[in-house]
Design a protein around this nucleic acid. Structure first.
Lengths: 136, 136, 136, 136
DNA sequence: GTGGTCTAGACCACC
DNA sequence: GTGGTCTAGACCACG
């Protein structure tokens, strides 16, 4: 489970965690009964207070997406029909639209925009490989 | 100028206003020198406090998107972004990073991601041309 | 960190705070990564509303002079001014214009004006060196 | 009487007028019994509302610096001992110090600073000559 | 009428 | 404890 926080988005860290886990479940990246990272380990990894992670997990539990078994950690619950590719693509399109508006106001041209889109993807892939060299 | 607040999004009302006005300017729905709704009338329309709208307008002025003259109102400007190229690129990168994290959790592959990035840019350009048939 | 408000100057309290903190940072009285007084404690000390201090800090953050992490406090940053050279020069020109109008009304001649401009720069540099004997 | 307003100083236009006239009197640029421009002509010249000029004049009258004779305009009153050169120079120094702090945060070097100081003076002189080609 | 600022007090997110 | 946001209502500066 790879969570990344964006401190410039104007969205609370705990909501970012909720959203990313929701999306991962929606896409089938985490399947039913898969365990989630423990509150304290995720907090340590993201270098945030564990209460923040706990709040996110509470919210996810309230939404019925995960369940916690005391002393054993949190698991993804049953009954999640993963979204179709078109639906997932639509979510991404909305996010990309926001980036494009930002690029417009920053007077960034098409080439630079595509360059940044590519570069950041590569940087993300690189970060992933460095952190978990043997898996995924 | 139609602004709508979503109280479930987890995003501050003032940031929603900022974003929607940015979108409107980027899309060409409001053009340079067009007046914006007055702070207090917009506040009344959205049924929020006028300070919240004022905060949004202050933020937009700081970004160089609107200009305001006390006692006269607020207008869309034409010269955006007095930031250095590197600073502008950095802002875009941060926004792109957010999208990439979403794409990752949605299990969207590199090709689809790039395709969406290109497609949405084209769609944005097209919409802008339709709105402003004689210019740009 | 000693901030004092002058209620007769005709300048907003929040702008006076902004200016005084800018001065303190420029003079080297507060150095990079030094913490600033908390919003609420400074408000209490100055006997003003905390929102007024918050507004000043927001302004300083947008100028790149301080950084703030919610729940942790505000700190002086080291990298200022992501603005284009032309934009930075424009801001300085506007400030200089104000001085020149004063000089004109005070019947100060060109030579004296330039002399004062030079002298004060030297005095500023000297003060900075005294404060930070090992750096810079 | 040449008044210039600076909309970026954070000081009210009416206070700027008050200050500039005070300084002019302090420097002896306007002597006792000299007439001031009429409220409406000054308002027109500065392209501001006449109420704003009226407010400045009222303030000056309250301070005893000028007197108004109904229907005849405003005059500088008696008993103004002009400031000594050193005192006027001190006022200018304080203003210059503010500019230098700004230059520091804008990371502007000594040469650029001096260049801007010179340039703006020339620009001011040029403006003065254009507006009043035959006098002062 | 416009925008700008301040106050008092509240709630939330985070450490 | 920290900062961030919002509300309600007030006063000022300006047109």
């Amino acid at each position: 489970m790879r969570i990344e926080l964006n401190y410039k988005s104007g969205q609370s860290p705990y909501l970012q965690i909720v959203e990313q886990i929701k999306y991962a479940v929606a896409a089938g990246s985490i399947e039913s009964h898969d365990p989630l990272p423990s509150i304290r380990s995720l907090a340590q990894e993201l270098r945030i207070n564990h209460n923040t992670v706990a709040k996110a997990y509470t919210e996810l539990e309230r939404s019925g997406i995960i369940a916690t078994r005391a002393g054993k950690g949190c698991y993804v619950t049953d009954n999640h029909s993963p979204l179709k590719k078109s639906a997932r693509r639509q979510i991404l399109s909305d996010a990309v639209d926001g980036v494009i508006v930002e690029a417009f106001h920053l007077k960034i041209d098409h080439n630079t925009y595509l360059q940044v889109c590519e570069e950041r993807w590569s940087a993300f892939e690189k970060r992933r490989k460095e952190k978990r060299p043997t898996k995924n």
